[in-house]
Design a protein around this nucleic acid. Structure first.
Lengths: 212, 212
DNA sequence: GAGAGTAATGGCACTCAGTGTCAAATGGAA
DNA sequence: TTCCATTTGACACTGAGTGCCATTACTCTC
């Protein structure tokens, strides 16, 4: 099965004058310069040399600009779940996949960081994230449901998915740094947080927590 | 210390012409009738006999109407945390408090249900909820931090707070009923979900889960 | 190379949430 | 009454998002 290279389907009709990538790039620059709220869709459109109306054909909303190819990434996460050994404990698989899924190319890290700073620090985007992360939770719930032999909509898979998302978000927030002190690797933070989740946040034995 | 009864401070100046309660009541009726999105702030204001501008002096946004006295309720949760025995395991206290906090007067249940249906099913409100639930998480994080001897902003208290919120939301969603089949008590659902969280979602021993 | 068909574009007008400003209304107190 | 504090609501404005539609750009066929 050979898929054609991205964007050469030789279709009839006028060709797109820009791309999501390009618009995102313009938008990020403006967000960096003036902040998310102060940047209007008009600004972005003008900056990209397109009409305001056209912007909304590339993105459903101004909020969606910061999400890049998120939905496509989720396919990757699904594959990672599929590739875990079936006898591995559920929460161990979950932990491993979430950590792996969030491992990014070092070159991409600055952009990833700016993206996540926007999503988790701009109230409008944080609110919107709930909607986007619904897809993420679905992927987790489906995996958990498969392992548990339940339906994805039932309580335990949903609780697991919700809890996992929460822990991941806490990890991200910590990684971004509230006070901006020490710099830690995202994957390490996520691994530590999911280790805690796996143990029900119970202080093991005495208090030999594996703090770094 | 005696606090004056609600709203008789005999202040100078014009008296308020309505109340949050009253506006909420009008709004809920309209939401029920036409749905949240189709109901405009103008509709609510007109229904309550006030000006549009005045509405925004009672509520920061249309979204906030459905939240009632949420912030005040959180004080109650704080007290519940304070009243737990200090030697009780952290997650056990958390579970008990969340379950208690969400126990509502049977008379109030229908309204509570409609409120939560709005919050958890209307996308705009679900998104907005992330912002409001930030306060909820803060309360939990402060409690967890106290028990762990850490700062509320550090990773573990935050992870616990995020996970707890997630599990509570999953419980609520389940209570509302996706397909609308069997009717279960909210507190029972929350108790079961938090029991799972407490155990790290690990199938105990064989598979003797305490399913009802 | 002149249509014919197809798709993307962008302008226009509109709705609605939310905000700043300010004059008018309301009521207690001097 | 007059003064003062407070609330109200009208008006105007910004900005997101949407429906509509003529225009533009491109491919394919005759």
């Amino acid at each position: 099965m050979v898929t054609s290279p991205p964007e050469v389907p030789v279709r009839p009709g006028r060709r797109r004058s820009t791309s999501r990538q390009q618009l995102e790039s313009v938008a990020f620059e403006l967000f960096e310069l003036h902040g998310f709220d102060a940047t209007t869709v008009d600004d972005i459109a003008k900056g990209a040399g397109i009409g305001r109306r056209t912007f909304f054909r590339y993105f459903e909303s101004k909020n969606d600009v910061v999400w890049g190819a998120f939905s496509e990434q989720l396919d990757r996460m699904r594959l990672q779940f599929d590739s875990r050994p079936g006898d591995e404990p559920l929460m161990a698989s979950l932990r491993a996949v979430v950590v792996e899924f969030n491992r990014v190319d070092p070159d991409e890290e600055p952009r990833h960081r700016r993206r996540m700073e926007l999503i988790l620090r701009v109230p409008a985007l944080l609110a919107h994230s709930t909607l986007r992360y619904g897809e993420w939770r679905e992927v987790v719930a489906e995996f958990a449901a498969g392992r548990l032999g339940e339906r994805p909509e039932s309580l335990r898979p949903q609780a697991i998915a919700h809890a996992a998302l929460g822990v991941a978000l806490a990890g991200y927030q910590h990684w971004l740094g509230e006070g901006g002190v020490e710099r830690v690797a995202l994957c390490d933070v996520l691994d530590a947080a999911f280790a805690d989740l796996e143990e029900g946040f119970a202080p093991r034995s005495a208090e030999a927590t594996r703090e770094a």
